[in-house]
Nucleic acid binder design. Structure first.
Lengths: 210, 210
DNA sequence: GGGTGGCGGTACTGACCGGTAACACCCGTT
DNA sequence: AACGGGTGTTACCGGTCAGTACCGCCACCC
C-alpha cells in the first residue's frame, strides 16, 4: 500500500538551467505538470504525493504550491491536460481529412491501433482517475465532459460516413475501446490486441444508407 | 481528497446481539468483510481506512487485526470474495441449464442486463480495485485470474453454442461488458444501457457452424 | 468454578502527507 | 545600485492512518 520513491533526487540546478549549462529547463509549472502526468498515470493519484512530484520536477513543494493552490487543483489540471490532448487528436483528424469522412474514419482506427499497441500498461489515464476520485471531485466533471465529447465525435464520424445507426455504432465502438483499455490492467492483454480487428469487421459489416 | 465519515457510530451492542435482543449478528469476520465490500466499492480502497470499516462493522480495529494481519490482506480477501461471487454466477448458470447451451447463453445475457440496470454506479468492483492497486499487490493476481476465468467461461459458452469463432466473439462480448461498466462512472450511462441490445444483435448476427 | 479464548475499548506510536512560514537567493529591470 | 518578483531551502504544523499494547469483559466448556 505504498509507493517507494525511485525518483532521482540528485539535482544541482539553479534557475531553468543545470549547473553544467545544459539545455534550459521549461518553467516550473510545465515541469510539474509533465511529471504529474507521468507519476499520476503510472502509480495513481492517491499513492503519489506532492513532494514526490515536486522533486521529480526538479523543484520543491513551495514552488508547486505557488502554481497550484492544492493537490486537488493539480489533479484538475492533470485531467484538463489529458482531455486537451485527446481533443487535439480529433482536431488533427478533422484537419487532415476535412471532407473525406472515410479517410477520417480509417485514420481514427489507425490511431486506436497505435494507442492499444504502444505502452499503455495502465489503460486510459482519465478513466483511472475517475475511478480514484469521489463523484464530487471537480476533476470528475472534466473527465465526464471529455468522454461525452469523445462519444459525440464518434457519432459524427459515423454519421458523416453514412452509417445507418451512428448512435448505436458509436456506443458500440466506444465501449469496445474503453473495455480494451480497462481490461489491459486486469491481465488480459489478449482481447485488447484483437480489438482493432473487431473494429474493422464491425465497420465493414455495419449497414450504411448510401 | 478526503472521505468524510458518514457512518453511524451509535452502536450499543455486546457480543453478536444488540442490547435490545434483536437478531444475532454474524461473527465479526463476516461483518467486516461485508462492510469492507460496501465501503471499498463505494469509496475506493485508498480512501477507506481500517478504523472506519471496523466501526461500521460494529466492532473495532483490534478485532479486525485479529482476523486480517494487514489492510492488504483484507483487500485480498475482499477481492477473493468478489471473485467467488462472480464464479458462483457461472456455476448457477451451468446447473440451471446443464445440457442446453442456448438457454445458458440467454440466461447469461439476462444476467448482464440485470447487472447493468441495477445500482452499479461505480462499475466493476474488481476492475476498480485493479486500477487502485500497484501491479505487484497480491490482490492483483486474484483479480487477473478471475477475469481470465470469466473470459474462458465466455469462450466455452460460445463454443458450446456452436459459434464459428468463439474466441473472438468472447473477446468482443467481454470488452463490451467491461467497457460498459467502466464507462458508467465516466458519466456516460447511456452507452451502458444499450449494451444489452448490442449483445443480442451481435449474437444474432454472428455466424454459427451447425 | 476456574480456565481459556474470543471480543470490545482505549490509548498509543510512528510514519506519512498536505499545506504553510520564513528566509536566502538569483535575475532582470530601472 | 537599488529594487522586486519568481524561485530554492529548510523547518515546521496538524491531521490521518496503519498497526500495536494492554486491559477488561463475557461466554463457553471441562
Amino acid at each position: 500500500m505504498a509507493v517507494k520513491s525511485v525518483v532521482s533526487k540528485t539535482l544541482v540546478q539553479t534557475r531553468r538551467k543545470t549547473a553544467a549549462g545544459d539545455a534550459p529547463l521549461p518553467p516550473p509549472r510545465e515541469r510539474i505538470l509533465a511529471v504529474a502526468r507521468d507519476l499520476f498515470y503510472r502509480h495513481g493519484l492517491h499513492t503519489v504525493g506532492v513532494e514526490l512530484i515536486a522533486e521529480a520536477a526538479q523543484t520543491n513543494k513551495m514552488t508547486l504550491y505557488r502554481h497550484f493552490k492544492s493537490k486537488d487543483e493539480l489533479v484538475v489540471e492533470y485531467a484538463r491536460g489529458l482531455a486537451a490532448e485527446g481533443d487535439a487528436v480529433w482536431e488533427r483528424l478533422a484537419e487532415a481529412h476535412p471532407d473525406n469522412p472515410g479517410k477520417r474514419l480509417d485514420a481514427w482506427v489507425d490511431h486506436v491501433e497505435q494507442v492499444l499497441t504502444s505502452n499503455v500498461e495502465r489503460g486510459c489515464a482519465l478513466a483511472n482517475a475517475a475511478v480514484e476520485l469521489q463523484p464530487d471531485h471537480p476533476a470528475r466533471a472534466v473527465i465526464e465532459a471529455y468522454k461525452q465529447r469523445k462519444r459525440e465525435h464518434l457519432v459524427k464520424l459515423f454519421a458523416d460516413s453514412h452509417y445507418r445507426d451512428p448512435e448505436l455504432l458509436a456506443d458500440e465502438v466506444f465501449l469496445l475501446f474503453e473495455g480494451a483499455r480497462i481490461s489491459i490492467q486486469c491481465g488480459g492483454r489478449g482481447p485488447a490486441l484483437r480489438v482493432v480487428k473487431m473494429l474493422r469487421d464491425l465497420l465493414a459489416r455495419a449497414a450504411r444508407d448510401g
